[in-house]
Computed example of a mutant assay.
Amino acid sequence: MINTDSSFFKLISSNGAEYSSSTVIVADDKYFTYEGINPGLALTGNVVFEVPPGLVGLNLQVQTGFWGTETGIINLN
Rank of each mutant, 00 (worst) to 15 (best):
I2H: 09
S6L: 03
F8Y: 10
L11T: 02
L11I: 06
L11P: 02
I12T: 12
I12A: 05
S14A: 15
S14K: 14
N15V: 14
N15K: 14
N15R: 12
Y19V: 03
Y19E: 10
Y19P: 03
S20P: 03
S21W: 00
S22P: 05
T23C: 00
T23F: 05
V24S: 01
A27E: 04
A27C: 01
D29M: 10
K30R: 12
Y31N: 07
Y31H: 08
T33A: 06
Y34E: 09
Y34D: 10
Y34S: 08
E35Y: 03
G36C: 04
I37W: 00
I37N: 06
N38E: 11
P39M: 05
A42Y: 15
T44I: 04
T44H: 08
N46M: 04
V48W: 00
F49P: 00
E50K: 12
E50C: 12
V51H: 06
P52H: 13
L55G: 13
L55K: 11
L58N: 12
L58I: 05
N59E: 13
N59A: 06
N59C: 02
V62D: 08
V62P: 09
G65S: 07
T69D: 00
E70C: 03
T71Q: 15
G72Y: 12
G72T: 15
I73K: 15
N77Y: 09
